[in-house]
């Protein structure tokens, strides 16, 4: 009898421990469904880099994305950066095109945790892969109209972060705020999606800001135009298109 009681107690405890995680996983998957709902997207954007002293410099770029693992990102200004372009393909295949070099170049994943062209976003932050493929949901709680979700990287994910804490609206599951923690458990970055809009049937952040708490800098990103589901062909995500 004693053995049965202990077994039942253990099963109940295990179930209680598991259920929030299940909820957290569901929330994470719902967030992915909202964030990556479109088949493709074409974006023109303005990046404002703000240094520690508050001095700003502006960059402009355009980006084409299909699904979660194909993207071309091309700077259009300033002149020193214009036409520098990146191509991301499945299986962490990445190419860079530097106009001065006149040829595409394969880049290895060692740059993943480095700043993306001087911004406070790393290459890793810029990835558009599903969060649920790269992170495990650990816990979720409710605060007012928001969910607070904690996620940790999967063993296969070579990231500089040890965890992220995401705040998202219960109404749309779109993240409002993301806190990034390093391996020592210290918060190192913070993303604020300052303007979240519903464009057609999709929710998207059209203005957001990444702060690097270590450097005291921030990068503001503003989408000046965004289009969804234009039916972009796979041919657009090739080295041929990268070097044009």
């Amino acid at each position: 009898m004693k053995r049965i009681v202990i077994t039942v107690f253990a099963v109940v405890c295990w179930a209680l421990m598991q259920s929030p995680a299940q909820d957290a996983t569901t929330v994470l998957k719902k967030m992915d469904e909202v964030m990556y709902a479109s088949k493709d997207q074409t974006v023109k954007l303005k990046m404002t880099l703000v240094d520690k002293a508050g001095k700003e410099s502006v960059r402009e770029a355009e980006s084409y994305q299909k699904g979660n693992d194909k993207r071309i990102f091309r700077f259009t200004s300033p002149a020193s950066q214009a036409n520098i372009a990146f191509l991301s393909l499945p299986d962490e295949v990445m190419y860079i095109y530097l106009p001065a070099y006149q040829k595409e170049r394969r880049i290895a994943s060692h740059i993943k945790n480095q700043g993306f062209s001087g911004t406070d976003f790393s290459y890793d932050d810029m990835e558009s892969k599903l969060y649920s493929e790269r992170y495990d949901a650990v816990s979720v709680k409710t605060e007012g109209n928001n969910y607070i979700l904690e996620i940790v990287p999967k063993a296969t994910n070579k990231t500089e972060y040890s965890k992220m804490v995401l705040t998202m609206g219960k109404n749309n599951y779109y993240p409002i705020n993301v806190k990034y923690y390093d391996k020592a458990g210290k918060q190192v970055k913070e993303l604020n999606n300052t303007k979240i809009e519903q464009k057609g049937k999709y929710w998207t952040a059209t203005e957001f800001e990444m702060k690097d708490l270590r450097k005291g800098t921030k990068t503001k990103m503003q989408f000046t135009s965004i289009e969804f589901d234009k039916g972009i062909s796979d041919d657009e995500f090739t080295v041929r298109k990268l070097i044009r």
């Binding site: 170049r105 394969r106 880049i107 290895a108 994943s109 060692h110 993943k112 070579k158």
Partner: peptide, 11 residues
């Protein structure tokens, strides 16, 4: 031949 070994770019 160019590519990656682990996280290291090689050619």
């Amino acid at each position: 031949i160019s590519g990656t070994i682990g996280n290291v770019g090689t050619w």
